[in-house]
Each structure stands twice: as C-alpha cells, then as structure tokens.
C-alpha cells in the first residue's frame, strides 16, 4: 500500500545506536529488542456490484438460517427482532461482519468472518428489503469487502478486480476532508469507540467494538442502521459527504504508522505507558541500584 510507505518515517533510527552505546557504558548490558511488529490485517476490499441479484436464493437462505429467530414473515420472535423496514444496508452490515446468523441471541455478537459469500449476502439483502419493507439501501459508493481469490477462476481476473478495487478505495479515502472528519468522529463516535477506534466498554456488559477491520461500506452502514446499542446517524444528521470525511479520518488514522517506536503499546496510551514505566523502567533502574551497591559491599 503505497500511501503508507510514502509516509512512513523513521525519525528515531539513528538514536538507537547511541542508546545502545550508552547502555553499555552504564552496565554493559545488552538490549535485544524483540520484534513486535503486529501484522494488522488491513481488510481493504472489493465489491462486484454488477452481478444481478437472485431473490429466490436470498429467500432460501433466509428460511434456512434466519427465520428461526426472525420468523418466516420477518416479524421477529422472542429470539430476534422484527426486520420490518430495516433495509438492505442492515442485512449487508450484519451478515458481512459475521454478526448474523447469530449464535446466541442473548449476547452482543462479536465480529467474525462472514458465513456467506458476497453474492449470497446481496441476494439475502435484496430479499429482506423486498419482502419486509424497504429501508436504507446498501451504500454502493463506499468500497466493501476486497475481492477474494476463491471467487475468481483465474489469477489475472482476480488481479484485475483487486487493482480496480484498490483504485476505488484510494479514491474514496482521498475524497474526504480530514478536519471535518476528525471533528465528526470526535464528537459523535469517540466516546464509545475511543479516539483510536480501538473500542471501549459500555454499560450492561455491552461494548463498542474496535472498528479497524470494518470496511468503509460497513462503517457507513453502521452509521445508517445503528446496530445494537449504537445510535443511528442517518444522511440528514451526517451527510453523505461528511460520512466520507469521517471514514477517511478513521482509515487514515488506522493506517498511520507509529512514529514513536516499535512498541506502540497498541495505542492504549497512558495506562500502558504507566505500566511500562513502572515494570520495565523502574525495575531496571532499581535492579541496577541493587547491583551497584552489592558490588560495593564485596569490596569493603
């Protein structure tokens, strides 16, 4: 991903050498920094919107794996809510993030790999939208899941789709305005999902999940459908353009490398810093004090 590499900076690289020399000066203690590069899977992905939807296939899936909780008529049961008027966007969000079909209707579902292929999800969404009354449509303009190799017969077709997807992704992300996005995110989302998008605790055992893996489309859909405990931010509260800015801000921040060092402490911040300050910093220094004075005792 070019836009990461272009911005990656190593302002600290040179100092490492000096520090190691200093450490030797102090006690001749060798420092081996383990490699903590965490591969943050960046799900950046594609949509093959053109394919025609197959509503009967959607119906079949619904009857098989959704009706038990949501009812054949979509009016809901004690295990699942009424789907009247939820719209295609809600289905696409719930199923593409792996929340639906739910495993346990009593708890908040975590994000999982989707159970259905993209085409199947589109079929399902179209069926629900048509049968149970329309709601917010899938925001096609925001890129969804990246193309999967398994969906393509040959390599070149996959590569072409992938390239096309990446171009669309970059174009979408480049389109927004960082300042507007930052303000919108900090005002509307950060108190639940935290400033970094790492998520946070809510009341009643619920939590706001991390939003790093969500595709732009899923972020968009989350806003217009308000899953679970999350409020709805429809296109009048936050306009389509503003949503693009917000998504740009989230995705840019996430892609931003941690300039401050190889150990980013998962961007948890001050609690983790305090913990490291005490456990690593203080213990090393106190250990050295013990070492120095013990040495002294041996002499006298």
């Amino acid at each position: 991903m070019k836009w990461i590499t272009a911005r990656r900076r190593h302002p600290l690289a040179g100092y490492v050498v000096v520090i190691i020399a200093l450490a030797f000066f102090g006690v001749g203690y060798a420092f081996v920094a383990p490699n903590a590069d965490r591969a943050q899977a960046q799900t950046v992905a594609a949509g093959s919107e053109e394919a025609p939807v197959d509503i009967s296939n959607g119906k079949q899936i619904f009857v098989q794996s959704c009706a038990s909780c949501h009812g054949l008529d979509g009016k809901g049961t004690e295990n699942g809510p009424d789907l009247t008027g939820v719209g295609a966007a809600a289905v696409d969000f719930q199923v593409s993030t792996g929340r639906m079909p739910s495993m346990n209707p009593d708890v908040q579902m975590p994000r999982r790999d989707p159970v259905y292929t993209e085409q199947e999800i589109l079929d399902l969404a179209a069926y629900v939208d048509q049968e149970f009354g329309g709601g917010p449509a899938i925001p096609e303009q925001a890129p969804g899941l990246a193309p999967q190799r398994s969906d393509f017969e040959d390599e070149s077709e996959y590569k072409a789709a992938k390239e096309q997807y990446e171009a669309a992704y970059e174009q979408y992300i480049a389109g927004g305005d960082t300042e507007a996005g930052m303000k919108l995110y900090m005002t509307n989302c950060a108190h639940c999902h935290s400033w970094s998008g790492a998520g946070g605790a809510l009341t009643d055992g619920r939590w706001a999940p991390e939003i790093h893996e969500a595709t732009p489309r899923e972020i968009y859909e989350a806003m217009i459908t308000g899953p679970g405990a999350m409020p709805v931010f429809n296109d009048t509260t936050i306009t389509e353009e503003e949503k693009q800015s917000l998504i740009k801000f989230v995705k840019d921040l996430q892609a931003e490398p941690d300039a401050g060092g190889v150990f980013s402490l998962d961007r948890i911040g001050q609690v983790a810093e305090g913990f490291i300050g005490w456990t690593v910093g203080m213990s090393l220094i106190v250990a050295c004090a013990i070492w120095i004075t013990a040495k002294q005792r041996a002499h006298d």
Binding site: K183, M186, T187, A190, H191, C192, H193, S194, W195, S196, A198, G200, A201, A208, I268, G269, Q270, V271
Partner: peptide
C-alpha cells in the same frame, strides 16, 4: 466538542 473514551 471532542469527547473520547480510552484516554487517561
């Protein structure tokens, strides 16, 4: 207007 969780 900023309010965020996860900061101490």
């Amino acid at each position: 207007t900023s309010i965020t969780s996860g900061l101490q």
